[in-house]
Simulated assay, not measured.
Amino acid sequence: MYTYMNFQTNIARTKPSTLHNKEDSCPFCDRETIFKEGVVISQDGPFLLIENKFQTLERAYQMVLVETETCQDDLSTYDKSHLHALFDFAMRNWETLESSKKYRSVIFFKNHGVHSGGSIYHAHMQMVGLYDADYREHLHPEQFSGLVIDRTPGVEFNLSTRPRGGFTEFNVVLSDRNALHKMAKYVQIAVHFLLTHMNKRYKSYNIFFYEYKGNIIAKIVLRAPGSPYLMGYSIIQVPNNLAETVQRIQSLYFSEAASM
């Protein structure tokens, strides 16, 4: 079962694309214009939640969460204080949008890289209020379980054995809101591993956030050219070296010699 939404191509054609065109100026670096336009919904230090100027989806309200003041940094390299503050700001605003009851559901995700579906290089996330659709209708518990990489009270970090889209998907499952900062660290480790050790060629990923069965879940997905098996036949491929990948991450990030 799928949910279909109308996409307004005439609006999409006017969007800048700093990922594909270096001549385009970055709209998220130009904070003076952002404030003049009056599109700021929420602000805390360097973090902004703003109205998306390009509302390409019908029956939805699209927002952008700008993570940094410049294009120089990315989630994989944020220091601890910036990382924690970002997740505090993001979760607070996501929960506020959900509890407003304006939308049937609010999707929250991040694009990074040319294969992620994004267009702007500057580090950002997106929140989209859906008036008619509930993303939870397409979720299943097995999509968030897997081989455990690490676990601390209130949060689990695993490698999916039943991915939604195939190949490499990490899950960070938060069951205790007080462990949010540990969740943020697990997400950063997954992103750093994908970009530095696993996806050097494409350097693209998505993070999808879900509220599901009382948990907050982040699914970090390696992105590369789409699989014809998935696109044409809904056949999901699962790598046969999952245990090896888990051991590699544990060695790199959770051993005594780990550098991150």
Rank of each mutant, 00 (worst) to 15 (best):
Phe54Trp: 12
Lys53Arg: 06
Leu174Ala: 05
Ser76Arg: 10
Asp24Val: 03
Met198Asn: 14
Val148Leu: 04
Lys203Val: 03
Ala258Ile: 08
Glu137Leu: 13
Glu58Ser: 13
Tyr212Ala: 04
Ser119Gly: 04
Asn158Met: 03
Pro239Gly: 01
Gln237His: 08
Gln247Glu: 01
Tyr212Ser: 08
Asp176Leu: 02
Asn6Tyr: 14
Ile149Ser: 00
Thr245Arg: 15
Ala243Glu: 11
Leu57Arg: 07
Ala85Thr: 13
Arg164Lys: 10
Tyr2Trp: 13
Gln43Glu: 14
Ile216Asp: 05
Asn6Ile: 15
Leu180Lys: 08
Ile220Tyr: 01
Thr18His: 07
Trp94Asp: 14
Thr161Asp: 09
Gly118Pro: 01
His115Leu: 13
Leu97Gln: 11
Ser17Asp: 02
His181Pro: 03
Ala224Asp: 05
Leu230Ile: 08
Pro16Glu: 01
Ala257Phe: 13
Lys110Glu: 05
Ala257Ser: 15
Gly118Phe: 03
Phe254Gly: 02
Lys22Tyr: 05
Ser99Lys: 15
Glu32Cys: 06
Leu97Lys: 01
Val114Met: 08
Phe89Lys: 07
Thr96Asp: 15
Ser160Arg: 03
Pro46Gly: 05
Ile249Tyr: 09
Ile217Ala: 04
Phe109Trp: 09
His122Thr: 14
Asp44Leu: 11
Thr152His: 12
Val106Glu: 08
Ser100Thr: 13
Val172Lys: 08
Leu57Trp: 04
Arg59Gln: 07
Tyr229Gln: 11
Val64Met: 10
Asn171Tyr: 02
Met127Asp: 13
Val155Gly: 07
Phe170Arg: 03
Ser42His: 06
Ser251Ala: 10
Lys182Val: 04
Gly45Trp: 14
His115Tyr: 13
Lys22Thr: 01
Gly146Met: 01
Asp134Leu: 11
Gly129Ala: 05
Asp134Ser: 08
His197Gln: 04
Glu137Pro: 05
Thr168Glu: 02
Phe47Val: 11
Lys36Glu: 15
Val64Cys: 07
Asn21Asp: 07
Tyr103Cys: 00
Ala258Trp: 11
Lys80Met: 09
Gly165Glu: 11
Lys213Val: 08
Tyr61Cys: 09
Thr96Ser: 15
His84Ile: 14
Gln237Ser: 09
Val39Gln: 11
Cys71Phe: 00
Phe254His: 06
Ile235Asp: 08
Tyr131Glu: 00
Gly129Asn: 07
Phe109Val: 12
Ile34Ala: 02
Lys102Glu: 15
Ser100Glu: 04
Leu194Met: 00
Leu242Gln: 03
Ser175Arg: 10
Leu130Gln: 06
Ala85Glu: 07
Asp150Ile: 08
Arg104Phe: 10
Ile34Thr: 13
Gln237Met: 10
Arg92Phe: 12
Gln237Ile: 11
Gly45Gln: 11
Asp150Gln: 12
Met63His: 06
Phe54Met: 05
Phe35Ser: 10
Ile41Pro: 05
Met1Lys: 13
Phe157Ile: 06
Gly165Asp: 14
Leu49Asp: 10
Tyr186Trp: 00
Gly232Lys: 00
Arg223His: 01
Val238Cys: 00
Arg151Trp: 03
Val66Leu: 12
Ile107Trp: 01
Thr3Arg: 12
Leu180Thr: 05
Thr245Ile: 14
